Computed example of a mutant assay.
Amino acid sequence: MSSGLIGKKVGMTSVFEDDGRNIACTVIEAGPNIVTQVKHADGADGYDAVQLAFDDKKEKRTTSALKGHFDKAGAAPKKQVVEFRSFEGDVDLGDVLNVDDVFTEGETIDVVGVSKGKGFQGVVKRHGFGGVGMATHGQSDQQRHSGSIGASADPSRVFKGTRMAGRTGGDRTKVKNLRVVRVLPDHNAILVKGSVPGAKNSYVELHKK
């Protein structure tokens, strides 16, 4: 069986646990996934992996090469294709994996997604700087500036990696050890405790531990 699934972040909700606590959960639509390729270490690929595809897309928006790739698996063109390097059990080309085939309630998983893009931001929002307080560090007129960024004659340059203003967000991000609170096979959905990276309707990868 695959070591994970591709999903789509639907939004957030809350559920009551048996002890009466109300916990925040992220709702993820996680299936059905189609096996579009199986790779083996002793084959031409040289490593073991399972390629999964999720979410139908229009055939006219699919290249001929990709259409032929999906046809081999007997699947319609898909929007998202992800390769999982480790897997348990046997899967075959064209197999359909649903959320209850892979995950069980109570286990912990890792979720990978692309974080929300926030555009060009200053050092206070991007790195959590406290601001210079209009006092020192080479800055006197704006609270949220970074202040001095370099040394004097030696080394006479700004070191690489110095934290400055710049583009924030839009990075591949992994959140580890999220507990599976509910598995909803009728809706092909899974509820995990806490938040996961990305905006609503963005794709995420769900990896078993």
Score class of each variant (00 low, 15 high):
R172T: 14
L52E: 06
Y47P: 06
E105K: 15
T104K: 15
V175C: 04
V82R: 14
T36H: 04
A73H: 06
F129C: 01
F159G: 01
S152H: 10
L184F: 04
L93N: 07
D110I: 02
S3R: 09
L191S: 09
G147L: 01
G43E: 11
G117P: 01
M12I: 13
T168E: 06
D92P: 00
A75V: 03
D141T: 14
K58M: 03
G31F: 08
N33M: 02
K67F: 10
P185K: 14
G7V: 08
P155C: 04
F16S: 13
R157A: 02
G138E: 12
V112A: 10
V124K: 09
D101A: 12
A49K: 10
I23N: 12
V38H: 06
E17N: 12
G150Q: 08
K67D: 10
L191W: 09
L66Y: 13
K125T: 07
G113L: 06
G89L: 04
S148C: 06
N98S: 13
H40W: 04
K208R: 15
R167G: 00
V35P: 01
D90T: 12
V91D: 08
Q121C: 02
K200W: 04
H187R: 13
F159A: 10
E59Y: 03
H187K: 15
D95I: 02
G170F: 04
V102D: 09
D90L: 01
E88M: 02
G166E: 06
V111L: 10
F159D: 12
S195W: 08
D42K: 10
I149S: 02
